[in-house]
Design a binder for these strands. Structure first.
Lengths: 223, 223
DNA sequence: GAACACTTCCTTGTATACAAGAATGATGAG
DNA sequence: CTCATCATTCTTGTATACAAGGAAGTGTTC
């Protein structure tokens, strides 16, 4: 009556989220087989809603369904990964440009808080990884374009298993944090192009960072 | 043996494409109810694969599934539509920037051919609409980033029902064509930023064009 | 005459049964 | 000993039956 609950989820959607989380968290490795019966047993449902969830994940690009041959966690080639990071960098740069123009007081506050959270945990890789995610999401939201924010969030999630390993590289956290600082300053100053210009290489993997990524890819494959 | 057929589609995927086509073509109006039994009868299958197709379409943002209350063709608010066009413009601008750098001979040929097709049919709105689509897709492909191309294609498809009506506006075809010409020239000259700068407003709807779009939205609702 | 409640019907959600296509292992030939 | 072919088994794909939650229509009451 007061607020019609838009968070009402069908079973298939809940199942999708659960499986998606496992993929993002690295519990399900790229290339791993997703057996319908096992999943059904695990979640105590029949195969029907499991299949519906898998179809959703296939559209999201997180699993690959080979007809009559089952579903596997989608595995990305180095080329494709590079392409996705290229797009991610541009989406986030766009968020910066828009955010600088449209930044409201509450957005600014959220950004600063997220940034301080990053600072607080910058010696703990895993914690920094999570705080970093929140900081970037704050920028998406600040863009004022909810569709853009959703798309960025989606792609971020899709790249999560790969990004995760990447931060372990030496000094990456320190560099990441100081880049955040510059981005934040530019946004507050309303310098959208400036912020976008820092964001792009901050996100994109190229040169030696790309090599590092490929290395972690191989680690993933070996697991 | 020679080429493993990646085009092998499951039934659910075929059904999704069919329904998606109907939505894009405007046969299914935003807000319209998608009855599982009717669809099942129409395609001569049971409800199971229909439901799988609907779940896919929900992930693609083309239908909305309200739990226990059925699926409807997704209807976009003017705000959301504006947001989506804003992102579309940026994606296409990005394609331009990349294409100018990476343009190969076959890409250039495809672009010129698509452009000449547009010219040939520029007095027929519907034919121009289709040729226009091909021209833009040629640019996506020329970006050399297949992921970007796919995303652009996806969003283009999602906006199709709205874009379609939009071209009917007076002089829009003529303006569109001359913008194409300038984009093409910039791309061939390797001027990525130049091409991107023309592409952005070419795609984005703003000012009076946005009003036109809202007007067609209302037409759509009345049908 | 209008509003509310109750009942009925219709649609969606889920499980299960069955069909049919891969994968696997065994058996035989080279 | 290796490779190919065939049978068996396992998994996916689809239909259908049943359950359960909305929607709509009817009747009653104020």
């Amino acid at each position: 009556m007061m607020s019609d609950d838009a968070s009402a989820l069908s079973t298939a959607q809940r199942l999708r989220q659960e499986i998606e989380n496992d993929i993002a968290a690295g519990l399900l490795i790229p290339g791993e087989r997703l057996d319908e019966v096992s999943l059904a047993n695990r979640f105590q449902v029949s195969r029907t809603p499991i299949r519906e969830a898998l179809q959703q994940l296939a559209m999201a690009g997180m699993v690959e369904i080979r007809p009559r041959r089952g579903a596997v966690v989608a595995s990305l080639t180095p080329e494709r990964l590079y392409e996705m990071f290229e797009v991610m960098a541009e989406l986030e740069a766009m968020c910066c440009r828009l955010a600088a123009r449209r930044l409201g007081p509450s957005d600014a506050l959220a950004l600063e808080r997220a940034h301080r959270s990053c600072e607080a945990v910058r010696h703990d890789h895993d914690a920094y990884y999570r705080a970093n995610e929140v900081f970037h999401q704050a920028i998406y939201a600040a863009s004022g374009n909810t569709f853009l924010a959703e798309q960025a969030r989606l792609l971020q999630r899709r790249l999560q298993p790969y990004r995760r390993l990447q931060l372990r590289v030496r000094n990456r956290v320190q560099n990441s944090f100081s880049e955040h600082e510059r981005i934040l300053a530019a946004l507050m100053a309303g310098e959208g192009e400036e912020a976008a210009g820092i964001m792009r290489p901050h996100v994109q993997v190229q040169g030696e960072r790309f090599s590092d990524l490929i290395a972690s890819l191989k680690l993933l494959g070996a697991a």
